[in-house]
Design a protein around this nucleic acid. Structure first.
Lengths: 179, 179
DNA sequence: CGCGGAATCTTGTCGGTGACAAGATTCCGC
DNA sequence: GCGGAATCTTGTCACCGACAAGATTCCGCG
């Protein structure tokens, strides 16, 4: 099976990228290192993604799709949706890290824009169901608080006192928005 | 004045870094490009900062000090403190970008830890004065919502409908936490 | 004043990286 | 089973970060 054609390179590279980025961040990502992990030549990745920005565009798109899945699975409850957002960030740290850093990829890519819109709609929908009001300001507040908590958690900026269960801590924090 | 000794290189490099990072993110930062902007040889920056991580450590430390200044100027009101946090992120985008990405610098640097603690104390203090309660959960919620809003704003992920005045929009969002 | 060490900066070099070009190999529709 | 297309390789170039060695300037101390 060690044929000239790898056959599955695109997926393997994306998954290797997830590993590498989770380990040391998108800045340290090297296409040549990915190629080495996949056992192909140093120029093979360029064929599938064009360049580094192309790979990260595909990676971010995959991330927005994964986020949409996670939000759908969380159901209709707004609190659960928020917890799911944080859970996604923790479980798919590498994707989350790239998705909100548009200077790393091509933010005008049509597939990426579509995937981002899908996940955004799920977020806004949850808020609208919960409050009944015009969702703009509420959705923005809800998005901000879960996004902020997730970001701070991932950056390691939170004091140890918060504990080691991000989803439980997130639930407590999100509740403050409804009191 | 074009002497062998530049005399002010350290500060010039930090300010050039702020420009370069604001333009295209910390990932694209190049020590050699900074040296070129400052008019010195390609190896001069290494003398002051050791390596790239050293420069970003100093840069992040400067950022935490600037944040502390901004929070102090905002006064005692919690809402104003939150708005000031967002204002800092927008006005010092480059610093904010680096401060919460510890994989880019040496997070165990003593000066950095001290500066971070100073700004953190100002945040927690504002919350304690406002609620009177045990500040942990409230502070975390307040920090999360302003940090999240600032991050989303900077990433360009927010829809145009939010407007072009980040501090005004932040004020609206933060108010949701107290209603 | 001036000497000598320390601080500051330069030059030169090395391995690693992203991008590109050209060529080799394999796949697949017809 | 032929031929174009897709996939991958090899080779190359400029740029970058890190390091080593040397040049220049500054400054404390006699």
């Amino acid at each position: 099976m060690a044929s000239y054609h790898h056959g599955d390179l695109r997926r393997v590279l994306l998954s290797a990228a997830a590993e590498a980025i989770a380990e040391s961040g998108p800045a340290a990502l090297s296409l040549r290192e990915l190629a080495r992990r996949a056992g192909v030549s140093h120029a093979a990745p360029a064929h599938h993604f064009g360049d580094k920005a192309g790979l990260l565009t595909a990676f971010a798109t995959q991330g927005f799709d994964l986020l949409a899945d996670a939000l759908r699975q969380a159901g209709d409850d707004l609190l659960d949706t928020g917890v799911a957002y944080v859970g996604f960030a923790v479980r798919h740290r590498a994707h989350f890290d790239v998705m909100f850093r548009p200077e790393l990829y091509r933010a005008d890519d049509p597939e990426l824009i579509a995937a981002r819109a899908r996940s955004g709609e799920l977020l806004r929908g949850g808020v609208a169901r919960h409050t009944g009001r015009e969702p703009d300001a509420d959705a923005l507040a809800a998005w901000s608080i879960v996004h902020g908590f997730a970001t701070l958690w991932l950056s390691g900026a939170l004091p140890p006192r918060v504990g080691d269960d991000p989803e439980a801590a997130a639930r407590t924090v999100i509740r403050r928005l409804f009191s």
